[in-house]
Design a protein around this nucleic acid. Structure first.
Length: 478
RNA sequence: GCCCCCUUCGUCUAGUGGCCUAGGACGCUGCCCUCUCACGGCAGAAACAGGGGUUCGAGUCCCCUAGGGGGCGCCA
């Protein structure tokens, strides 16, 4: 059987982190079966039946988010709203077959019904007032909803790939609304009809939908359709253990991008949050496709841990391509300095990237580190750096300047040897000269290895920066 | 309130009755490496929610309690 999965977000906001994980699992499951099984397809459906809350901006944000994460879907995204005729037709068919009926209760009547049920300690259910009543009794001027005539005895069972066998008594469920008074389909009807028509084989979604699944199974049965396989994955909780919702600290994937996370780090983190493959932590996309299986998905909710995500991001930055990182860094650098960068800044940043990326966990950190390569002289020094360049240090720098000025064959190993020789001759510990050098050349107290910095900067720029310090050309401390 | 689900270090997790004096990762602490900061290496503190069973033997199976989560819309 070929596997068909789907991600079905409602476009009422950004693609949040929980949604991203659901999409990832669906994508991975389909890809796995495409590569190692009998075929797999991943589809996208926008659940926009709630016209009041759906926006095109949200649709774009979701599409952008998925694209950025590298989760591509097959074909065009399906608009649920556009399929309303098919939904209505299914409801009419149920009505004709006697599996559904018209309900003339007003929203006010239903509200009091709910309150009373709650007060009496019962589950708040529709009491079935119109289930067996003749439509001839209908009050004038009330547009009816169409409700499913759900089974009242027995139980509904779901064999969930994650949660296992879950059973609920049919008496626990009321007759759900299929078509609203205005003729538009409800979510329950729309999902079932769409999943069926899209030939979805596996429904993988958050376990907040677990109880919905029971009602959906009733609908599938009434419609005479076979049910897809369900897999309800646990929700992601915030650091405080409470659910992570849009109004409770959940960020959109775009926010994580702006914070400086790489998509592969987010995917790796999300994959490991609630799923595992032994002790493996760093999992490439190819490995994920090969290894991913619903069996290994945990049942309990997991807390979102920014520190671990950040650590993972550092790993992916260190392993990222220099040209790609340079592009990201230069874009930010231009924005930060209004385009006022040194000539050849991008080349220096790229050349120095291998040393830079070793020390950053987030892209903005990388930008901070790269700044000294890209800025025009004279460099501004931060406070710690300027205190390092005291009168004694200046004497050393002056001496070293003469030494370095004599070098024609400028390379990391040559300047390294020159500085070491100088330190030895002056009976200085290397740090005594390396730190002031770092302050002078980078304006900071932390940077990649100082000889690497000198090599990337080149002979002329290195000497010019040293000269700036010796002549107090620096524009002051930053 | 009612229904459903969950429960191993602070966090993510390994663990499918004996290999567990419970392993890995993040974070934390100490040491090493070292021109700074990282990276890396080594070491350390840190968990089977509680109580009953079943069994020769339970983190692993069953029951109860507690705690947590989700659902109960003419929202999705």
């Amino acid at each position: 059987m070929t596997v068909v999965t789907r991600f079905a977000p409602s476009p009422t906001g950004f693609l949040h982190i929980g949604g991203a994980r659901t999409a990832l699992y669906n994508w991975l499951f389909a890809r796995h079966h495409a590569q190692f099984g009998d075929g797999g397809r991943f589809l996208l459906r926008i659940e926009d039946t709630d016209r009041k809350r759906s926006t095109n901006e949200a649709v774009d944000a979701i599409l952008d988010g998925l694209t950025w994460l590298g989760l591509d879907w097959e074909g065009e995204a399906v608009s649920q709203f556009a399929r309303r005729d098919a939904h209505a037709a299914a409801a009419e068919r149920l009505l004709a077959a006697g599996h559904a009926y018209r309900c003339y209760c007003t929203p006010e009547e239903l509200a009091t019904m709910r309150e009373r049920a709650m007060a009496e300690g019962r589950k708040s259910l529709y009491d079935g007032t119109w289930r067996d009543r003749d439509s001839a009794d209908a009050p004038a001027g009330v547009a009816p909803t169409i409700r499913l005539k759900a089974p009242q005895d027995g139980e509904t069972v779901i064999e969930d790939l994650v949660q296992g066998r879950v059973t609920v008594a049919n008496a626990e469920m009321d007759d759900m609304v299929l078509l609203r008074a205005d003729g538009t389909p409800t979510y329950m009807l729309a999902v079932v009809v769409d999943d069926h028509d899209m030939a979805i084989s596996h429904v993988i979604r958050g376990d907040d939908h677990l109880t919905n699944a029971f009602r959906q199974i009733q609908l599938y049965n009434a419609l005479g359709w076979s049910t897809p396989v369900f897999a309800h994955i646990p929700l992601i909780h915030g650091a405080d253990g409470a659910k992570m919702s849009k109004r409770h600290g959940a960020l959109g994937v775009d926010a994580y991008r702006d914070l400086g996370f790489l998509p592969e780090a987010i995917c790796n983190y999300l994959l490991r949050l609630g799923w595992s493959h032994g002790d493996d932590e760093f999992i490439s996309r190819d490995q994920a496709i090969e290894w991913f299986d619903i069996d290994a998905v945990n049942k309990g909710a997991a807390r979102f841990d920014m520190a671990k995500l950040t650590n993972l991001n550092g790993h992916y930055i260190r392993n990222a391509d220099d040209a790609r990182l340079t592009e990201l860094v230069m874009r930010d650098l231009h924005a930060r300095h209004d385009g006022k960068l040194a000539v050849g800044a991008a080349d220096r940043v790229k050349m120095g990237m291998s040393g830079l990326k070793e020390r950053a966990k987030l892209i903005p950190e990388l930008v901070d580190f790269a700044e000294f390569y890209a800025l025009p002289r004279p460099l501004l020094m931060n406070d710690k750096a300027s205190t390092l360049v005291d009168s004694e240090a200046r004497i050393h720098i002056a001496g070293l300047y003469k030494e370095l000025a004599g070098i024609d064959d400028w390379s990391e190993s040559v300047v390294d040897a020159a500085v070491h020789a100088f330190a030895e001759r002056e009976s200085l510990k290397l740090g005594k000269i390396a730190q002031p050098l770092r302050a002078a050349l980078t304006g900071t107290t932390t940077s990649p290895g100082i000889f690497e910095v000198m090599a990337v900067l080149g002979r002329d720029e290195t000497l010019a920066r040293l000269n700036d310090v010796l002549n107090d050309n620096a524009a002051g401390s930053a």
